[in-house]
Design a protein around this nucleic acid. Structure first.
Lengths: 152, 152
DNA sequence: GGGCAATCCGACCGCCCTGGTAGGATATGA
DNA sequence: TCATATCCTACCAGGGCGGTCGGATTGCCC
C-alpha cells in the first residue's frame, strides 16, 4: 500500500469540510458519524491538518473545524503531505543529505544510484498528480455522485 | 515510504544483470557482494522476478541468473509490480470488487468515493512514470555515472 | 458559575508486515 | 564425489500502524 489510512481519513475529512458552509465550524463528531470513523483517531488526523495550516479550529461548545481557505485554493499535494509527511518513494529520499542524485545507501559505491533515477521519476509522477488536483474537484465530485436523498 | 526494500533490491539486481553480458549466468553471490546485500534475502527477491518471467535461472555449479529478454524491452512497471504486487495507493484498490468508482470502504454510503478519484489519479501518475522507464535506461545511467576504476 | 460540548494532548497497546536468518533439498559442472 | 549454486519453507525480532484511553483545557449557554 502506498498511503496509510491517515491519508484516506484526512482527505475524507477535508472533503467533508469542503461540503459544509465555511461560516460555522463543524465538529469532529459530525464527521466521524457521517464517515463511520473513530472519533478519537480523527483527532490525531485533524491535528496534522491544523498544524499544516489547512484547517482552523475553535474550542469549546459549538466549536469545530473549517477550511482555512477556499477549497479551490487547496492542492491535494498539501493535504497529503501534511498527513503523510514528505512524498518519498524510498527510504533514502527522506534525509537527502546532498542534492546530488547519489543514493545514500552506498555513498561511495563508485557510481550514481540508478534506482534513484527511477524513484525520482516516480516521485515526480505522484507529486504532479497531487498538485493538479484541488480539494474543490473532490468536493464537486462528491456532490455530483450523491444520490438524491429522502424521497427514495 | 512508498515502496519497500524488496523493490529497491530487486531493481538493483535487475540493473546489475543488465550490466552483465547475457551470454553466461551471473550468480547471486556476485551481485550480493557488489551491492552489499544479504545473499539469503536476495534469493527471495529474485524468486519473485523469476516467477514473473523477467529473469531466467540455471541451477548447479556455474549457475545463476540472466535477463529473459533485452533490457530495452523491460519496462520498470513490470519489475516493480513483480516485486511489490499491484501498484495500489490505497487498500480498497487491491480487491476491486466492481469496476465502478465506488470506494469499497463504504459501498452504500450514498455517494461516490471522492478519495478514490484522487487515488486513481495518483496511481495513474505512478504507473505512467514506471511504464515510460525501461531497464535499459537505468543500466545506461549506471554506466555513464560510473567512475573510472583501477588507476585512481 | 456550573455543566456540557468540544478541542487538545500524550501515553499506551496489540497486530501485522517487513527485513532478515536458518537449514536443508536439489541440481549440475569439474 | 565434491563444490557451487539455485530453490524452498519455516522461523523470528523489531517497528510501524491503526486505534484506544484518560484527562486537561476552553468556551457557550442556562
Amino acid at each position: 500500500m502506498i498511503f496509510s489510512s491517515k491519508a484516506e481519513y484526512g482527505v475524507r475529512l477535508m472533503v467533508e469540510l469542503g461540503r459544509q458552509s465555511p461560516e460555522q465550524p463543524t465538529s469532529l463528531k459530525v464527521i466521524a458519524d457521517a464517515e463511520g470513523l473513530p472519533l478519537a483517531y480523527l483527532e490525531q488526523v485533524v491535528a496534522k491538518l491544523r498544524k499544516a495550516g489547512l484547517v482552523m479550529s475553535a474550542r469549546g461548545a459549538h466549536g469545530g473545524y473549517w477550511l482555512s481557505r477556499p477549497a479551490d485554493e487547496i492542492a491535494m499535494v498539501d493535504v497529503v503531505q501534511a498527513l503523510e509527511g514528505a512524498i518519498a518513494p524510498m527510504e533514502c529520499f527522506v534525509h537527502d543529505h546532498t542534492e546530488r542524485v547519489l543514493c545514500s545507501h552506498e555513498p561511495d559505491a563508485g557510481r550514481g544510484c540508478a534506482t534513484k533515477l527511477l524513484w525520482t521519476r516516480v516521485q515526480g509522477g505522484i507529486i504532479r498528480s497531487l498538485q493538479t488536483t484541488t480539494l474543490a474537484e473532490l468536493v464537486e465530485f462528491s456532490r455530483r455522485t450523491e444520490r438524491e436523498p429522502a424521497h427514495a
